[in-house]
Each structure stands twice: as C-alpha cells, then as structure tokens.
Design a protein around this nucleic acid. Structure first.
Lengths: 198, 198, 198, 198
DNA sequence: GATGAATGAGATTTCATTCAT
DNA sequence: AATGAATGAAATCTCATTCAT
C-alpha cells in the first residue's frame, strides 16, 4: 500500500500549492526554488522531478487553474442567455472564483497576466477575451448593444475593469469582504451593460 | 563647447532614456545593468553615480514620468468642465501617452506594475485613482451620474478599462495605429460615461 | 565507499584548510573566494553552502582554532601548578602553535588581529588575557610575584611579548627553526617570570 | 600672496589628517578614497594630486610619523645613559608620543605595523627593533643585563609588550587616562628591566 | 590647484539546475 | 521518489584611478 490518492499526487500538489503561496508573497522573481521547496516541506531537488524548471511551475499554475475558468466561460457562452446576462455570469465567475483563493489571484494578476513569454498562456487568455468579445457581438446582433462600438476594444475595456477590481483586492486597496464582492459584481455589470446598451 | 542638446541634457537623462528602451525590449529582469549602459553609450559604473541600484532606475523612471501625468490629471480636475468631459480628458491624456512614448508605456504597464513594492508608486497611483473617483463623485453631485454606484469601485473599473487597452497595445494584441487610438478614446469614454450616466 | 580520510572529513574542512593556506599566502584582502575554492578543489559556490560570506570563513577559522587554544589555557589554569609554571605552560602552548601550523598562526596574527570587529574574537581573546591575569594574581597571592605591579597591565605586557615573537616568525624576521622556538620559550618565560618575581 | 604656510601645505596636511581619522575609524581596507576626501572637505580627485595612490597615503602617514619617533630613539641610544635608563626612555617615548594622537596609534598598530608590503616601513621598524636590541646588548656588556638571554629575541618581547599596551588603549580595553599611562610606563619598564637584570 | 564625472577591472554573491546516493 | 551537496554561469555593485574642464 502506497497510501491514498492524496499521498499519490501528494508532493506534486504540495509543491504547486506552496509555489502559489510563495509567488503571492514574494513575486515570481523574488522567489527562489528553495523557498518553494521549504514551504512545501520537501527537498528542493524534488521540484525537478515534477517540473522541468522554475518557469514550468508558474506555467503549470496558470494552465491548471486558468483552464478551469475558461471551461466555465465556454459554458456560459454556449448557454441560451441573452448577452447582458452572459456578461453578468462571466463577471461573477471571474470575481467569485478568484475570491476563493486570493494567493492564486495575486499570482495570476501580478506574475502571469503580463508575461509575454508563455505562449500557451497567451493563447488561453486570448480565448477568454475572445469569448467576451463574441458575447458583445451577440448583443449587438440581438439589437441590445450599440452596434457602433468596436466589440474587440469593448471586450478589453470590460475585462480590464474586472481585472482591476481583482487587483484592488490583491493589493488590499479595495475592501474585499463578502458584501463588497457582491457590490463589485453589480457595479461592474451595471457599468458594462449600461455602457454597452442601446 | 559642450556639443548638442543630447550632451546638454547630460548622461543621467541618457541613462534613463536608455533604460526605458532596454526595459521595454527585454523586461526589467531580462535587462542587465551593462545593457543599459551600453545603450546609453557610457560605462556601467556611471549608472551608479546617478542611481543607487538598478531598482532605483526603474523607480526613477516611474516617478519622473507618472508624476508628470499626475500633474495633468490635477489640471483637469481643477478645471471648470462637467464631470463627463473631465473623464474624457483624463482618458485622452492616458491613452495618448502610448503614441507619445510606447516604450515608456510598455515599461510602466509591464515592469512597474509588477514591481515588488515601490511605495512611491503605490502612493502616486493611488492619487490618480482618487482623482478619477472625485470626478465621479462630482458627476453624481451634478446629477449627471447615477448616485447608486459606488464611486470608489467605479473609479477602479474605469481606470482598469483604460489600462487594459494600453496593455493590449503593449502586448501587440490590439491594433495600435493612429486611428485605433482615436477610436479607443471614444469607445472607453462612451462606455464609461454612458455606464455611469443617469 | 567514500574514499580516504580527506573525503571523510568533508568539503567544509577542505575549504577551511584551503582558506588558511590561501589567506596565509596572500592575506585576507588579497585572496579571492575563487582562490580558496580552487585551492580546495571545489566550485566556489560551494563555499556559500557552508559559510554565509568570505568574512564568515575568517571568523570560523578564528573561532574553531582559538577556541581550542583557549580550552588548553583553561586546563592549565585549572591545574595545581604554581603560577610561574602555569605561565610557562601557557607560553609553550602559544609558541608551539607556530611549528604546528605556521599558516594558521600567520592568518591569526596578520589577518584576524587586524580584522574590523569580530565580536567573537574580542570576547575570546579577552578571555585568554583574563586567564593570564588570574595566573599573575595567583602568583601575587602565593607571594611569588610582586604585589605592587598591576596584574591586568602585566598580563597585557606578557601576552604582547608572546604575540610579538609569533609575529617575528610570521614576518620572517626572527629565525623560526626548532631550536629557536625552544630558545624563545625560555627567553620569554625567563623575562616574564623574573620580571614579575619578588 | 598665496597665504601663510598653513594654507601653503593646507590641503595636503588636511588630507593626511583626515586619512588618519578615517583609517582609525574604519581600517585601511574599510576606508574609501572618497571618505578621506570628504573628511578633509575636498574633492577626491585632489588626493591624487598629492599622492599617487591610496596606498601611498598610508605609507606617508607611516613615514612622516614613525621617522620622528625613530629620531628620538636614536637620540636616546646616542646618550650616555646606562642601558636600563635607555630602555625606560624608549618606553616613555613610545607610550607618551602616541598618547598624543590616539587615532594615529590606532592606524599604526592596526593597519601599518603588520603590513609586510611597505618595504620602507619594514626597514624603519626593523631599525627601531635594532635600537632596542643594541641597548640590551649594551646592558649585557655593562654586566647589568643577563648575558644568557638572546638580545634579539628579548628586544622583540620588550617591544611587543609595549605595543600590546598601546593596542589595549586603542581597543578601549585598558584604561587610558593620564595616571594609567604613567603606571603603564612603570609596569613595562619594571618588568623588562628586572626581567633582563642579572 | 581643484573638481567630480567618467571609467572599467574585478570581486562577491546568488541561485537555478544537476546528480550521486 | 527523495535528498541536498555540488556546480558554475551570470549579475550587481564597488571603488581606485583618470582626466577634461
């Protein structure tokens, strides 16, 4: 017996979780491989058993977490909801999912989001933007959203608004309690939907 | 005789300008002090005559340039314009920095924003947000903007929308020609103002 | 199988021994970390696995070796010998370190003694002086040594005489063969004991 | 008119005095050329107008000060005094002269005395030792000092005793008031003379 | 004489990565 | 799988010295 499934994938998961905490605390460049291993309670050589480099750890964090988010975005897009409600659903997913794990949000916003290096990442983030864009186009086709606004650009503006709120929470500069999160959802959605509406 | 205006401005300016170009090209962590000096055409030791560390170079770039931006924001706030037009003016100032100095915007968006904890940065950016927030409050007082939206939160959303557009340009994922910049101004302003309006 | 005793003792010991040789040859400031590593036959990075800095290497050399000396001084103090013989024993211990490990003595005399402010050093050397002082006081109590001399001061003078002889050997300005060492013992002890005697 | 003699040699003297203070405070290797210039209140480039290197500054400090001391030792040696009194005179010169300038003593004892590099220095210090040695030989010839002790070795022991007392004062570990200095003179002389006496 | 900007060799230290055990 | 000693490329920073003004 080699233990249950937790032990099976144990060390790899421990390392990944530790990396999120360490990156959140010190930033990617400010974190050493040894810090991650120490936080995970293993020898640092072990990290190279599971990952080929420090870089791949960050990439893995991104891939395994952003992919899930993307899946849910796709679900929203595929649904029968009107555009405005799809936008609302997306906003809620983004703001709520990440509230579950502030450290992960910190890493995503600070370290991953603007690294132009990771190609897989760029592709996946691009897809998230594309979904928002298509929802806006849908709204324009339905006659609910103004057709004279560039949907592409609008998707960036909306996404940026969402991300900045997350950043505000991450930096501790916006109140991030339960109520505030609910209010933030309304505010962003109201702003976006009314801004886009005919 | 001390040569042309470049020499006039001095090596400090040359180093700062070179640093912006080098950071824009390779990122802060991907740039070596020697690269900056080489780009400036001076010995690397000279950098330490003017700055105490590589880090201080980045901080100086931020401080000297964001400070200027902030000055202009303050000018807008102090003007007699209605809130919507103030918002428009701020958006224009911010977005036009891109065409003005793309390298600088790249560094600001990619490197400064992710930098560990430049306290000066936090303070000054906070002030920029505060200006937007006060303009929104003014609009609410004038009855032009909806009073039921949290001005604080709204300011983050608006600012985030603007910053994300800059990011799109920096990452080469949004078209960034003259026309597109003009269109982006309109789009963001329309979205924000109509989103905020009664 | 892990090889002979050199390998047994480990790289840390190798580095420390190499440092003594290198410091003796070129002086602390004239030696580079890379020289020590090369002399030890390891990569220079390894030095930082065992010590936090070049400085700590010197401090460790001092601590681990002077500590041993001090132990032996304490043994002498604790013995039942009359004061004059204790002084003689201490002188022999100190002077014989030269033939035992000339490089070590060189480093101690030339580099440690001039080092900025190794606090450990100050404390331990102080203790060595204190032992000599207590032995003198004992001699005064026994009526063998003159009571009108300040024991504290006398301990410095005696210790200084010993150290200067070591310095003469280190600088190559006093002959340092087997015979000369034996003669030096007698000379210093004669001088000190007769000088102190009633 | 270019001012009086003080102004004439003004800056050079200022630099030398400043160097003594700075070296005393931080040690030779811990002091930067810029520190010396700052302490002297001049630009650091000026140091190179008067001295060819940082090293030459230290050498100059030694030469200009130790030479004076040596002159006085020579005077004592040339006098008609008996050996014991010559020894006493030398001890007084050493302990008193240096008490006039604690910083200078600090530098001499800590930075100069054990640098095997400066050849001029080695020669002059050697001469000082030689004087003490010849005085001891004289005492032996006069029948006052024991002939069975090695005069060379004895001179080092005596000189070392003196230097160590200076070191104790420099390090602040021996009380260094007016009275203590007088007592130290007696102690050292008593020890040495009685130790050497028949 | 005097200044201080400019130079650049050189040194310490860091840390991702490898690998023998 | 797991460890952590060992490696060594690479980077920042220091500072004595030079030199144009």
């Amino acid at each position: 017996m080699t233990g249950g499934s937790v032990a099976q994938e144990g060390k790899r998961k421990q390392l990944l979780d530790a990396a999120v905490r360490v990156f959140a605390r010190s930033g990617y460049h400010g974190s050493r491989v040894g810090d991650i291993a120490a936080e995970a309670g293993v020898a640092h050589g072990l990290l190279y058993h599971y990952f080929s480099s420090k870089d791949e750890v960050l990439e893995t964090i991104f891939r395994e977490n952003f992919g899930e988010l993307l899946e849910r975005f796709r679900g929203v897009e595929a649904s029968e909801l009107p555009a405005a409600e799809k936008l609302e659903a997306i906003a809620k997913i983004l703001l709520r999912t990440w509230r579950n794990d502030p450290d992960l949000v910190t890493v995503m916003v600070r370290d991953v989001a603007r690294s132009p290096q990771l190609q897989a990442q760029v592709d996946e983030v691009r897809e998230a933007f594309a979904i928002v864009e298509r929802v806006i186009v849908q709204g324009q086709a339905e006659g609910a959203f103004r057709a004279d606004l560039d949907a592409r650009l609008a998707s960036w503006v909306v996404y940026g608004g969402l991300e900045e709120v997350l950043t505000g929470w991450v930096l501790g500069q916006l109140p991030a309690g339960e109520d505030e999160v609910a209010r933030a959802e309304r505010t962003v959605v109201e702003l976006a939907v009314r801004g886009l509406s005919v």
